[in-house]
Design a protein around this nucleic acid. Structure first.
Length: 525
RNA sequence: GGCGGAGUAGCUCAGCUGGCUAGAGCAGAGGAAUCAUAAUCCUUGUGUCGGGGGUUCGAGUCCCUCCUCCGCUACCA
């Protein structure tokens, strides 16, 4: 047995400024599903998420709520932990930027970039509002007839030049373009790669990477008047997860990361700044930046005040975490934007889960329980139909793996459900309930083939619905140690004579009830 | 403005380098069956493939043009 190849995957690093919303949930679930898939497929997986807890906005929000920045960070971190648990998406580690280990990693990254001669002290000019204690973009400002300019908040702004450390991003244009050329899927999907390439081709200017106007951050090595600005601080989080800079750390082998899963809004930071920083520090680059789209709540009236979203934990509680996971990963091609609505979720739950897969399992297993003494029957000679269906199921690992190459999670699920659908067709046309009287041996074979298909389907669906599929495999009496993709072939099939537990429906139909429909909850942002 | 993407059945979309009578899922309609969570199975679409022009024996599938929508066009974590 060869050593299992390391696979390091991360979510983006959410800002600890507010409670998690559907976008965080989606990203966590998708990343978790990929991690589970790789794990079941034999990789040695490290799945890390994190939390960006520094910055002026943290200070402000905390102040407003009468908390210290750290207290606010702790509160938010607790909320994200709860979300991970509720969604069956707990990471192996949560790296928080306020942790000592992260300070060490970020400082070392900075030091290496400085040693490479890529960091210099200069002035960061901009329109500054003293009242807001913030810089504003030229485009955000409103002009006054008299010539003075105002911030969006109405406060006057003045042109100031703040001392700041800069990173020589401009030096990296060619190296970045070469990266995108040599490794076309460095940014996936292609759509986002094209945007990044176009952006870099327009030319890069140096990047301001420190601030001296607030102190809630990691001190710049050698100059404690400054703290690192978000770019270096938050991105270094991915290194921290592997124990950097300790090259002997148990997780050191996980760098470079295989995939950083991020939302489309932060593509630039991950596809441009991050590789440039790593090149500067002479560290290996991540294999891929995997970009996902957004989910929009359509059909629901949005509250007039901004920031009203549905709490993902409430969604999971209402529909079931597995059902929510399935919906989010199946409904929309990974990488594209999508919409969610109560109707769409219920439709998926009832059509795909309850009717197609859940009911198939139940009708098959109920017949085994009633007609085969609750023991998995032995098959007789296999017909062509039997073999064709089994072959389809057995082809799933390879097909799924291929789709996963591009992180096409929805394609994986589509492929699996094609088999479920064919299995339903098979079951109906073979009519085991008729054979029960006319040809019991044939009935046994049909049930056996169906059970076997269910076993493979359940194994392959585990990354997406770990809890329900665990239960289905339990109903099939598949031992815990035989549930990886390596077991998803026909030769590793079910053993005749195995006693099966009394079957119980895996996916109940969703029935409308007015009471506990998840309400939109406002969140502080 | 520049660059890029998209406009295909009621809805969501497949249709790779041009070639049998344009497909899938969902929704809708009719029927069969009754093992099963009233679940399942079968049958059912006269779609200007955004408009117009062109290349070709032949074009959603290539070229030109027009219309509409969307994304990106640097410091928000």
């Amino acid at each position: 047995m060869s050593a299992r190849s390391p696979f390091y995957i991360t979510t983006a690093i959410p800002y600890a400024n507010g409670a998690p919303h559907i976008g965080h949930a989606y990203e966590r679930i998708a990343t978790d599903a990929i991690a589970r898939f790789k794990r079941l497929d034999g990789s040695n997986v490290l799945f890390v998420t994190g939390m960006d807890e520094h910055g002026q906005k943290m200070q402000r929000t905390a102040e407003r709520e009468g908390l210290s920045p750290q207290q606010l960070a702790d509160r938010t971190a607790t909320q994200f932990d709860a979300m991970g648990t509720a969604l069956f998406s707990e990471a192996d580690d949560v790296v928080r930027t306020t942790q000592a280990r992260h300070h060490a990693a970020a400082s070392e990254l900075w030091t290496r970039m400085a040693a490479a001669g890529d960091i210099y002290l200069s002035k960061y000019p901009g329109w500054y509002s003293v009242r807001d204690e913030a810089f504003f973009e030229e485009s955000e400002l409103t002009g006054e007839p008299g010539g003075s300019r105002l911030a969006p908040t109405g406060a006057p702004v003045e042109w100031v030049e703040e001392e700041s450390y800069f990173f020589k991003l401009s030096d990296y244009q060619d190296r970045l373009l070469k990266l995108y050329r040599d490794q076309p899927d460095f940014v996936a999907p292609e759509k986002y790669r094209n945007e990044i390439v176009a952006f870099v081709e327009r030319g890069l200017t140096d990047l301001s990477i420190s601030r001296s106007t607030f102190a809630w951050g990691i001190p710049v090595p050698g100059d404690s008047r400054h703290v690192m600005y978000v770019w270096v601080d938050a991105l270094a989080n991915y290194l921290t997860g592997t124990g950097f800079p300790d090259s002997a750390a148990p997780r050191a082998k996980f760098w470079p990361a295989s995939a950083h899963v991020i939302g489309k809004d932060i593509t630039r930071f991950h596809a441009i700044y991050w590789p440039a920083f790593l090149m500067s520090a002479k560290l290996a680059l991540p294999r891929q930046i995997v970009v996902h789209g957004f989910f929009f709540n359509r059909g629901e009236k949005m509250s007039k005040s901004v920031g009203n979203v549905i709490d993902p934990v409430a969604l999971a509680r209402h529909y079931g975490a597995d059902a929510l996971r399935y919906f989010l990963l199946r409904e929309v091609p990974f990488g594209q934007d999508g919409t969610y609505s109560h109707e769409a979720i219920v439709n998926r739950i009832n059509a795909d889960l309850a009717n197609d897969l859940g009911n198939l399992a139940q009708r098959c297993l109920a017949m085994v329980a009633k007609n085969c003494d609750g023991e998995l029957p032995a098959p007789a000679a296999l017909s062509e139909a039997d073999q064709a269906l089994l072959a389809q199921a057995a082809a799933l690992p390879a097909k799924s793996r291929a789709a996963m190459q591009d992180y096409a999670l929805h394609t994986v699920l589509t492929g699996i459900w094609k088999v479920v659908s064919d299995a339903n067709r098979y079951f109906a046309s073979e009519e085991p309930w008729v054979k029960r009287k006319s040809d019991p041996a044939r009935m046994q074979t049909i049930l056996c083939v169906t059970a076997e298909v269910l076993r493979i389907v359940a194994i392959m669906t585990q990354p997406f619905m770990p809890d329900s599929m665990g239960r289905l495999l339990g109903l099939l009496s598949v031992p815990a140690g035989e549930r990886t993709f390596a077991h998803a072939g026909i030769t590793q099939g079910l053993v005749a004579g195995s006693p099966l537990p009394i079957p119980a429906p895996i996916f109940p139909r969703y029935v409308e009830s007015q009471e506990d429909y998840p309400k939109e909850a406002s969140r502080a942002d």
